[in-house]
Amino acid sequence: MREVTAAAVMAAAARLCVEANLRLGEDVLAALEEARKREESPTGREILAQLVENARIAWEDQVPVCQDTGYAVFFVELGQEVQLVGGTLEEAINAGVRRGYTEGYLRKSIVGDPLERMNTGDNTPAVIHVRSVPGDRLRLRFMAKGAGSENMSRLAMLKPSAGWAGVKEFVRQAVREAGSNPCPPLVLGVAVGGDFEQCALAAKEALLRKVGEPQPEPRVAGLERELLEAVNDLGLGPGGLGGRVTALAVHLALLPTHIAALPVGVAFACHAYRHGEAIL
């Protein structure tokens, strides 16, 4: 067994929260620059230019890229040979979020009870998903998930007879109805298959792939291109004010499912798509 301290997990979580919120990833920036070249709408091009400039200013002024610094969402891969010492994983991550959001001057956006709606004051609790994996490493993947995009998430339990055409139409409809609310140009995580909650989780996790990272499976890559084209044909464009680039990328996950089921989940990320990872 290899020991990893709770203090190390806390420090890594805190750093991820601050860095991801202040510095837009190179993958997203490159995708925005590329989008600027092919956007035909003058308004759209102006918005894309603002977004690139915004990322530069955020880092220079040490302020968040977007004021909605989000739910703190962690996907954790916990190696089976890792022994966590000095505290629990959940406590360590939440302590990191508390420190990162406070010391990084990030906005605290979490309410403790969804009906009473009192702010917890430190952006905890984080949303934490843990998977046990082989090996002696602990991998923390983080996203700051704003509510503008999160509120547009959709899941449907389609009939298997709906097939790929039904999936495509559902994704297109979800993006069309979301309109400008999720702050396009978007990154979309789409999962097909699994059961209800696995589908939602896989759609969210699909977002974590780097934007522009090639999809290794040619068949899936083809389906991703098809979805991207269908979404961009909607004409929403940057800011939803009309244009060619409604989405920067679509990341697709296909999962085993039941003979009677065809679940489809769509997770939305805005253009201020803030994510990062640490390996301990």
Binding site: Q50, N54, V63, G239
Partner: peptide, 12 residues
């Protein structure tokens, strides 16, 4: 409408 997500630029 202001540009959603251009929060650092607008803050200046």
């Amino acid at each position: 409408v202001a540009t959603g997500g251009a929060a650092a630029l607008l803050a200046r």
